[in-house]
Amino acid sequence: MWFPISQVTISPLLLATIGFVIGVLGGFFGVGGGFLAGPMMFWTGVPINFVVGTDLAHMTGNSIVGSRRHRALGHVDLRLGALMILGTIPGVEAGAQLIEWLESIGNIEEVVGLSYVVILTTIGLFTAWESLRAIRIKRTDQLEIREVLGIQSMSHRSRLLRIPPMVKLPVSGIEEISIWTIIFAGALTGLLAGFLGVGGGFLRLPLLIYLIGVPTHVAVGTDLFEIMISAGFGTLSHALKGNVDVLIALTMNIGAAIGAHVGAVTTRYFSGPIIRFLFSFLPLIAAVLVLLRITG
């Protein structure tokens, strides 16, 4: 089929299939899937200037379906998501400004690429180590509960910060936490997302779990809620610049809708540590993809 906006011919079935795969990942892990959708779209022939904007548009639709489904399952902490946004937006702007400043003093493509590889590898290895530890604890102690953390010190330390105002997050099972801890987590993920030029799903999920102490299932749903808002803003911004082929995004979303549904429902059949262990492969795959691009 001919897509006149981006001037490209692509099979709609192929787009819907890509959307389905990304949708399953998004619904299950709470990520936008930009690190996979982008290269896949480029591979199908979408011009590079349309890849980022169209990917964001697709991510928005995908996360709407995923977060609505997770909300129905009780996995979205709206209060936490709304508070994180307060930090995410200035964080993304600061990250983008940092990139512009670094660009003005030299070629930074390799610096950003290597930072990306180091950050993603660290997240992937840490999550794999922690989740395997949690799985062992769960087996040794024969615990029947869904959520076990292999480490606890980070979320405990973050709760010690008692700068008012304090907020209660009943959906996440958090009695009291400083609003500044949440805003800081949002700002940090926003800064990294803006600096690395990614949606930030696989940066936010570990922070929600390890720093704030949110159960994995709620972290996945809340992460999708955040992606829905941030990708929505990104879509609007890129569409104004003429970098979005909305028909390609809508076609991908047909597959993504059922994929996100499948992914979200499937989380009910896995415990938190298993989801985190499977998740740990995503940043590592993304790191390898970036490393190949830098060295290639």
Partner: peptide, 30 residues
């Protein structure tokens, strides 16, 4: 395509509304 060529603002608003509308509709449908 006509909206895309005519006005970027109108196109951006239509794009976001279509993405959001289809997302909600497909989720309700499933």
């Amino acid at each position: 395509t006509n909206i895309f060529n005519a006005s970027s603002t109108e196109y951006a608003i239509v794009a976001v509304l279509l993405i959001g509308g289809q997302g909600v509709m497909l989720e309700m449908f499933t």
